[in-house]
Simulated assay, not measured.
Amino acid sequence: MNGERPDAEEAEEIVRKARRKQAAQKHPQRSALYGLGMFGLVGWSVAVPVVLGVALGVWIDGHVQSHRSWTLILLLAGAALGCLNAWYWVQREGGDE
């Protein structure tokens, strides 16, 4: 283009490239590492409440005499909390698509 005005064909190519760049900026491509990271985040968001619930339940069962199994109750509560937590993260990260 050595300083001259572009002809119609060059102008169309410039406009096409600019539109493609704008579209790419609006919808960035996510890599496989992003997917693995999200997979790990969802896994940990479920695993941590379950493990904490089981640990607390074992401690309560060892220190308090009861006909209820606090380990089982808190395992289920941790699983429910973990699933809600995972659902929140998936909705938050996937909501822009």
Score class of each variant (00 low, 15 high):
Ile60Arg: 04
Gly3Glu: 09
Glu12Gln: 11
Gly40His: 03
Glu9His: 12
Leu72Thr: 10
Pro6Asp: 06
Pro49Phe: 08
Leu72Val: 11
Glu13Arg: 14
Val50Pro: 00
Arg5His: 06
Lys21Gly: 08
Ser66Leu: 08
Val51Thr: 06
Leu76His: 03
Gly57Val: 01
Val64Asp: 05
Gly94Lys: 10
Gly57Tyr: 09
Val58Ser: 05
Gly35Asp: 13
Phe39Met: 12
Ala80Tyr: 04
Tyr88Pro: 06
Met1Glu: 11
Lys21Cys: 10
Ala80Leu: 12
Val50Lys: 02
Gly82Phe: 02
Leu75Glu: 02
Gln91Ala: 13
Val46Leu: 11
Gly43Trp: 05
Leu36Ala: 11
Pro28Lys: 00
Ile73Thr: 09
Ala8Arg: 14
Ala18His: 05
Val42Pro: 01
Met38Leu: 15
Val54Thr: 07
Lys21Pro: 02
His27Gln: 12
Gly78Glu: 05
Arg19Leu: 09
Pro28Met: 01
Met38Val: 08
Ser69Phe: 05
Pro6Tyr: 11
Gln25Gly: 07
Val15Gly: 10
Trp44Arg: 01
Leu33Glu: 08
Leu52Arg: 02
Pro28Gln: 03
Ala86Asp: 03
Trp89Tyr: 15
Glu97His: 11
Gly82Ser: 02
Ala24Lys: 07
Arg92Asp: 12
Asp96Trp: 06
Leu52Lys: 04
Ala11Cys: 05
Gly43Thr: 01
Arg30Lys: 14
Gly62Thr: 05
His67Leu: 07
Leu75Ile: 00
Ala23Gly: 03
Glu12Met: 12
Ala32Met: 15
Ala23Asp: 08
Ser31Ala: 11
Asp61Gln: 03
His63Thr: 14
Arg30Cys: 07
Val54Met: 10
Arg92Asn: 11
His67Ile: 11
Val46Ser: 01
Gln29Phe: 00
Lys21Trp: 13
Asp96Arg: 07
Val42Gln: 01
Ser69Leu: 01
Lys17His: 09
Val46Lys: 02
Ala32Ile: 15
Leu74Asn: 02
Leu52Trp: 00
Gly3Ala: 11
Gln25Tyr: 03
Val51Trp: 03
Glu13Phe: 12
Asn2Asp: 11
Asp7Cys: 06
Cys83Gln: 09
Trp44His: 05
Leu36Phe: 13
Arg5Gly: 04
Glu13Asn: 10
His63Ser: 15
Ser66Trp: 11
His63Glu: 14
Val46Gly: 00
Arg19Tyr: 15
Gly94Val: 03
Glu93Phe: 14
Val51Met: 08
Val90Met: 13
Gly37Lys: 06
Pro28Asn: 04
Arg19Val: 12
Ile14Gly: 01
Leu52Asn: 03
Leu33Gly: 01
Ala79Val: 00
Met1Gly: 12
Met38Phe: 11
Leu72Gly: 06
Gly35Lys: 13
Val42Tyr: 01
Leu74Asp: 08
Val54Glu: 06
Arg16Gln: 10
Gln91Met: 12
Arg92Cys: 02
Gly94Asp: 13
Ser45Asp: 06
Glu93Asn: 15
